[in-house]
Nucleic acid binder design. Structure first.
Length: 301
DNA sequence: CATATGTCCTGAGAGC
DNA sequence: TGCTCTCAGGACATAT
């Protein structure tokens, strides 16, 4: 499930398309239900054909590709989507291909119109479950529909931003960390890892989190996400997540709590990692060293 | 307005 | 073995 580190890895992996020109946009043949594409493929091809990629960026968990005529492609991998250059895991779940060339030579020789394309490269969107979306939009729409709905990027969060934006919320801190309108980029894996490193009970309500706790959460956010980027993200046991050339991430080796129910806590050596469900999602934590002081109604002080 | 629940989708794995 | 059922969770629509 691509979160900030995985999406950052995707962006870095495909950044070599910057400066290249689109020659075609192809919706791969797929018997499965088509992914959400807006506008439809023919219009998308018409708009993008001939345009040069200016830059590849990340917006929270989305990949943002800016083209020269102020068109922006917003790719949301959601659960199983991958943005790649080559070697997709299979052809079955290949959804979209954008074909580039670095150089387009057009001219006449011997009275015949010739067109020479140099250096082909493709950007692929592969998505097993098909929940991902690919949308093309103008800057006003991008600003209104995407950017304005997102909180600050997780790597830009400070303890005071956390405190100001979260302290009036009545939901559990773990649930709030997943809310992209409060902070952009954190998903289920990294929310668990961040709260473990910060030593904060995931059930603690935001309006009960203390100043020192916000500082620890802020510090842990940077620490966990930056390290996970160095490791190129987490490829879980289902093997779904891959980088742009089908390599695995390795941060899963560093997970301290995620998907480790029943394992002894690496920090306190006493607790065993618990799994609970919050907002229909699994939460993993150490009940000993993330025991909240004073706040959760179902826990003794 | 804020918070909670339902929906989409496919494949892996459990259980019988 | 093969079937049915449940689950995984990101974002958004709809409900409370």
């Amino acid at each position: 499930m691509p979160e900030l580190p995985e999406v950052e890895t995707m962006c870095r992996g495909i950044r070599s398309i910057e400066g290249l020109r689109v020659t075609d946009v192809i919706m791969s043949e797929c018997q499965l239900k088509p992914i959400s594409l807006s506008p439809p493929i023919s219009e998308m091809r018409r708009v993008l054909e001939g345009q040069k990629v200016l830059r590849v960026d990340r917006l929270g968990k989305r990949v943002l590709i800016q083209f020269e005529k102020d068109d922006y492609l917003v790719i949301e991998p959601r659960m199983t989507g991958l943005v790649m250059l080559e070697n997709p895991p299979n052809q079955t779940h290949l959804r979209l291909e954008i074909v580039f060339c670095s150089c387009l030579i057009e001219g006449q020789s011997d009275g015949i119109q010739r067109r020479t394309v140099v250096t082909h490269k493709k950007m692929l969107f592969w998505d097993r479950r098909g929940l991902g979306t690919v949308r093309l939009m103008k800057p006003e729409v991008l600003n209104h529909r995407v950017i304005r709905r997102l909180g600050p990027d997780a790597l830009r969060m400070t303890s005071s931003l956390y405190a100001e934006n979260f302290k009036h919320k009545k939901k559990a801190i773990k649930v709030a960390l997943l809310d992209q309108s409060l902070v952009a980029g954190i998903g289920n894996i990294y929310a668990a890892e961040i709260l473990f490193l910060a030593g904060v009970d995931p059930r603690l309500l935001c309006n009960q989190v203390t100043g020192p706790q916000w500082q620890r959460i802020s510090k842990a956010t940077r620490e966990i996400l930056l390290t996970a980027i160095e490791y190129e993200g987490s490829t879980l046991s289902d093997g779904t997540y891959r980088n742009a050339i089908n390599g695995e991430g390795s941060y899963q080796q560093c997970h301290r709590v995620y998907d480790r129910e029943g394992v002894s806590c690496t920090r306190c050596q006493q607790g065993k990692i618990s799994r609970i469900v919050q907002a229909q999602r699994s939460t993993f934590f150490c009940p000993v060293c993330q025991r909240k002081r004073g706040c959760h109604p179902s826990l003794p002080q």
